[in-house]
Computed example of a mutant assay.
Amino acid sequence: MVRYISDRIGVMHCGRLVELAPGKELFSHPVHPYTQSLIEAIPVPDPRAAKNHSHAGYQAQRCGGQPVWHEVSPGHFVFAAE
């Protein structure tokens, strides 16, 4: 539903904003692993297609460096370690 009613979407994880992008951009090119896992978790209405749907889930990765905002495309920002 969010895909169809939102012009701009912010994804929060553990109380922090981790990705911010226009709606169409976020769903077509998610960058942060948590955003990717959320999109992969969207139910598929066709049971046959669901068999091929990956539900790997998000696993927090400990990265060196302090997370900072990166602009991956115009208006699409992701909060990640350098």
Results as ranks from 00 to 15, higher is better:
H13S: 07
F79C: 11
I39S: 05
G57H: 07
A50M: 06
V68S: 12
Q66K: 10
Q66G: 02
V72R: 15
R62G: 06
N52A: 15
A80W: 01
H55M: 09
P43M: 00
S6N: 04
D7G: 13
F79E: 06
E71R: 08
R3N: 11
H55L: 13
G10Y: 02
F77S: 06
E71C: 12
G65L: 01
I5H: 08
M1W: 12
S37R: 01
V18D: 07
L20W: 12
P30L: 01
I42C: 01
A21F: 07
A56P: 15
S37V: 01
Q66A: 11
G64E: 14
P43N: 00
M12I: 09
P30Y: 02
V72G: 10
H55C: 09
I42W: 00
K51H: 12
I5S: 11
V78P: 12
Y58G: 12
A41Y: 02
A56W: 14
V11Q: 02
V11D: 07
Q61I: 13
L38S: 06
Y34F: 07
G65Q: 01
Q59L: 11
V72E: 13
A50R: 14
K24C: 03
Y34D: 03
H76E: 04
P47T: 07
C63D: 08
G75C: 04
H32I: 02
V68M: 09
H70W: 03
V18K: 08
A56L: 15
R3W: 06
H29Y: 07
I9K: 05
S54A: 11
V31E: 05
G65M: 00
P30A: 00
I39L: 14
V68I: 15
Q59Y: 14
G10I: 12
V44F: 05
M12T: 06
Y34T: 08
F77R: 10
I39P: 01
G57N: 09
A49C: 05
I42T: 06
H53N: 09
F77G: 03
V2I: 09
D46A: 12
V18N: 08
V31T: 09
I5G: 07
P22G: 15
A50E: 14
V2P: 03
H76Y: 09
V31M: 05
E40A: 13
V72D: 10
Q59F: 13
R16G: 06
P47Q: 03
L17F: 11
A21E: 03
I42P: 00
I39T: 07
P22S: 14
I9L: 07
F79A: 07
A80K: 08
H32C: 02
Q61E: 14
G64T: 15
G64D: 14
S28M: 11
V31G: 01
A41F: 04
E82H: 10
A50P: 11
H70T: 13
A50Y: 06
H13M: 04
P67W: 08
P67Q: 05
R8E: 13
A50V: 08
G10K: 01
W69N: 03
V68P: 07
A41C: 02
